[in-house]
Deep mutational scan, measured.
Amino acid sequence: MAAAAAAGAGPEMVRGQVFDVGPRYTNLSYIGEGAYGMVCSAYDNVNKVRVAIKKISPFEHQTYCQRTLREIKILLRFRHENIIGINDIIRAPTIEQMKDVYIVQDLMETDLYKLLKTQHLSNDHICYFLYQILRGLKYIHSANVLHRDLKPSNLLLNTTCDLKICDFGLARVADPDHDHTGFLTEYVATRWYRAPEIMLNSKGYTKSIDIWSVGCILAEMLSNRPIFPGKHYLDQLNHILGILGSPSQEDLNCIINLKARNYLLSLPHKNKVPWNRLFPNADSKALDLLDKMLTFNPHKRIEVEQALAHPYLEQYYDPSDEPIAEAPFKFDMELDDLPKEKLKELIFEETARFQPGYRS
């Protein structure tokens, strides 16, 4: 834990890192770190609560700039109880001085990944967590956004079992017609939660990839272990087919990539493993919904509104309290091709509203 900075004593240090967030945020305490930044909790002297502050230093890398800009653009436009918001952003007053960006968010005690390492969940908890994931996802999908990296560590939890989806750095506007060349190379989302079509096709992607990830998360809540822990690309596919069985001819016809289709045709026939054999203690309604989410063919996979209306979630289902976005989200430009200098300018502009004396 960093010592509390005395008023006016300059930035606090946390594990050798400068955290320049005073005077409003003090009493910093280390939480963890990701690929390009550290997260601390801090005391907000204005709202009198502890908050989470993520320090991001992305400006050396085009990919990190892209992810940072995506996350900020999306989260500043989203407003939903099951999606983490941005409360404040701290950065230098000029673009030349801006080396880091500090993002202030609600402090959540833990995440689903940490929880599943230590606790076996009751059916009631599984049901409530799944409902909140789908409630947040309904809003995301209504904005025409794909999260693309749903996994237990991106689901934040607090002691009252509130759940918030975080990390929109890989999110995209849904565009089933656009052929994202190089899709697989830039697709760094965790393999275990990846839909089979991501490994088999490169053309376009749809909201059904997020539903697949939610199915993987439900299976993990039922058993405290990942359902498809593939060691590499082909191993991942083999794990999936080992449980779902061989795809039907109709399902194979959806695979545009001939090499991928021929690979699947070359494999020995596998039978589907019954879900109640894998999860003998699970609620039968939970397994019915799991089956509809972990469907090989993305066109037959359940959609988020149908999933919310499934009998497993009937005690929570309330369409009048499951809000959607006001308007579909649009990125003005494809960020993939922009140089990091341009992305830095866009991050600077996007964060201006939090600067003292800002006038829109």
Rank of each mutant, 00 (worst) to 15 (best):
A4G: 09
A4D: 12
A5K: 03
A5W: 03
A5E: 05
G8P: 02
P11R: 12
P11C: 10
V14K: 04
V14Y: 09
G16R: 13
F19Y: 15
T26R: 10
S29F: 05
G34R: 12
S41P: 07
S41M: 14
A42G: 09
A42L: 04
D44H: 15
D44A: 13
N47C: 09
N47R: 15
A52N: 00
K55T: 02
Q62I: 13
T63V: 11
Y64K: 15
Y64Q: 14
R67T: 12
T68N: 15
T68A: 15
T68C: 01
R70I: 01
I72F: 13
I72W: 02
K73S: 07
I74T: 00
R77E: 00
R77F: 09
F78E: 02
F78Y: 15
E81H: 03
E81S: 05
N82T: 12
I84S: 12
N87R: 11
R91D: 00
R91H: 15
R91G: 02
P93T: 15
P93R: 00
E96S: 01
M98T: 00
D100L: 09
V101G: 13
Y102P: 05
I103D: 07
Q105G: 12
E109S: 05
T110V: 10
L112A: 07
L112V: 06
L115A: 03
L115H: 04
L116Q: 14
L121M: 14
L121D: 12
S122K: 02
S122A: 13
S122L: 12
Y131G: 01
Q132R: 01
I133T: 02
I133S: 08
R135Y: 07
K138G: 08
K138E: 11
K138S: 08
Y139C: 05
A143M: 04
H147Y: 12
R148K: 08
D149M: 07
K151C: 07
K151A: 05
P152K: 07
K164T: 09
I165F: 15
D167S: 08
D167L: 01
L170C: 05
L170D: 06
L170E: 04
A174P: 07
P176V: 08
D177N: 11
H180K: 07
H180V: 03
T181N: 12
L184I: 06
E186G: 00
E186M: 03
V188I: 13
T190F: 05
P196S: 12
P196I: 01
N201Y: 14
N201A: 09
S202V: 10
S202W: 06
G204M: 11
K207H: 10
I209W: 11
W212Q: 04
W212T: 04
V214S: 11
I217W: 07
M221E: 07
L222A: 09
S223C: 12
R225G: 05
P226F: 02
F228E: 02
F228K: 00
G230T: 00
Y233T: 12
L234N: 03
N238G: 10
N238C: 12
I240Q: 07
L241D: 07
S246Y: 01
Q249A: 08
D251H: 09
L252I: 03
C254P: 07
K259E: 04
Y263C: 00
L264Y: 04
S266W: 03
S266G: 14
S266F: 07
L267H: 02
H269Y: 12
K270H: 06
N276C: 03
L278N: 03
L278H: 08
P280V: 05
N281V: 09
D283I: 11
K285C: 04
A286Y: 01
A286W: 01
L294W: 03
T295F: 02
T295L: 07
T295V: 04
N297K: 12
H299P: 02
R301T: 07
E303G: 00
V304D: 14
E305Q: 00
A307R: 08
A307W: 05
H310N: 14
H310V: 06
P311E: 05
P311C: 02
Y312W: 10
Y316A: 05
Y317G: 08
D318W: 05
A327F: 00
K330W: 01
M333R: 02
L338S: 09
L338W: 03
P339E: 11
P339F: 01
K340A: 10
K342T: 11
L343E: 10
E345H: 01
I347F: 15
I347M: 10
F348R: 03
F348L: 13
F348C: 11
E350T: 03
T351R: 05
R353E: 09
Q355M: 07
P356E: 10
Y358G: 11
R359P: 08
S360Q: 09
S360A: 14
